[in-house]
């Protein structure tokens, strides 16, 4: 056995130790166990690679894109098929589709991250407060949630965008407003299963305020199911954003948003199929990536399997 093998072996033992000696070791050990469970799932790793690739592409779009995403060569390069100069061809304004997809990764990430950052905390808060408080608070909060759930997501988002005006920021806002109710439902269900447990009662008997119990003892238990659900929903968010873009209510030209790109490629779909197919494939792959990642996270983070 080489020295590095011995080193890594003992590091693993340190991480998996049943008797961690510090807060840090306990936390790292827990993370390592989750990682081992996650990485045992090949497809989840594929999903993670796709998402990492998306992040890299978005971060280095300036380097990776050979052409400008917004300014095309109208004279010489209209609707060229895929080739050596333009890998994915060009669109009706002579713009390089590959460059537009690379820059589009930024907008996709922008939408997904902003929606998650807005919707997940709202859902978590509403759900845990409703579940823990019970009674009237619960009834009122959950009826509001039901009202949001009663409308199809895209239709509701359409209504909001129509009211707020088209544009990618408003699209993000509309999607966020329509996507928190399922998170509230999940958080509430999770809260109901733990609120009567002895360990929550024990904290009540310490004299903790309801606010503290929800924030520090109940929310951490809901977060993993929420992360899983949000990850699985990412694909849906991308599609909704694309849908809004396609209908002309999301990103406005000349922004290289993938949904809007499909919309503009629609007119040539029979003769110049690549204009719509390339962003379509990008949406497909990224959605798939998020779904696979979410599935892997479910195995790794599920509190029901996470204890033993």
């Amino acid at each position: 056995m080489t020295a590095s093998d011995a080193g890594s072996l003992s590091r693993r033992e340190w991480l998996l130790s049943d008797r961690p000696a510090s807060r840090l070791q306990a936390r790292l050990g827990r993370a390592y166990v989750a990682w081992r469970r996650f990485s045992a799932n090949r497809l989840a790793l594929v999903g993670m690679l796709i998402i990492i690739a998306l992040l890299v592409v978005a971060a280095f779009a300036d380097v990776l894109a050979p052409y400008s995403p917004t300014v095309g060569d109208l004279k010489n390069a209209r609707l060229l098929p895929p080739g050596a100069a333009h890998w994915f061809g060009t669109d009706d304004l002579g713009r390089d589709i590959y460059s537009r997809i690379v820059y589009g990764a930024r907008w996709t990430l922008y939408v997904v991250v902003l929606v998650a950052v807005i919707a997940a905390p709202i859902g978590l808060l509403v759900g845990t407060v409703a579940g823990y408080a019970g009674g009237w608070t619960d009834a009122i909060l959950m009826r509001i949630t039901d009202i949001f759930l009663a409308f199809p997501k895209l239709v509701l988002a359409l209504a909001f965008v129509a009211a707020l005006g088209p544009g990618i920021e408003n699209a993000v806002l509309a999607i966020a407003i329509t996507s928190w109710p399922p998170y509230a439902r999940i958080a509430r269900a999770e809260t109901l299963t733990v609120r009567n447990s002895d360990y929550i009662k024990a904290v009540q008997l310490m004299g903790a305020s309801p606010f503290r119990i929800v924030l520090r003892h109940i929310m951490p238990l809901c977060i993993s199911s929420l992360i899983i659900r949000v990850t699985l929903d990412m694909a849906g968010i991308i599609l909704t954003a694309a849908g809004l873009g396609f209908l002309g209510l999301g990103a406005q030209p000349p922004l290289p948003e993938w949904g809007a790109m499909i919309a503009s490629g629609r007119r040539f779909i029979l003769d110049q199929w690549w204009v719509a197919a390339a962003p379509g494939a990008a949406i497909l792959i990224v959605s798939l990536g998020f779904n696979l990642l979410g599935d892997g996270l479910r195995d790794a983070l599920d509190p029901r399997s996470g204890d033993q």
């Binding site: 306990a26 447990s197 360990y199 024990a202 904290v203 310490m206 004299g207 003892h217 509190p303």
Partner: peptide
């Protein structure tokens, strides 16, 4: 098995009452 929070270390469990008071 039910009276200890599943996601907290012993340290965290014991710190909580001290923090509250």
């Amino acid at each position: 098995y039910g009276s200890l929070h599943p996601r907290q270390t012993v340290d965290r469990l014991l710190q909580e009452p001290l923090a509250i008071h």
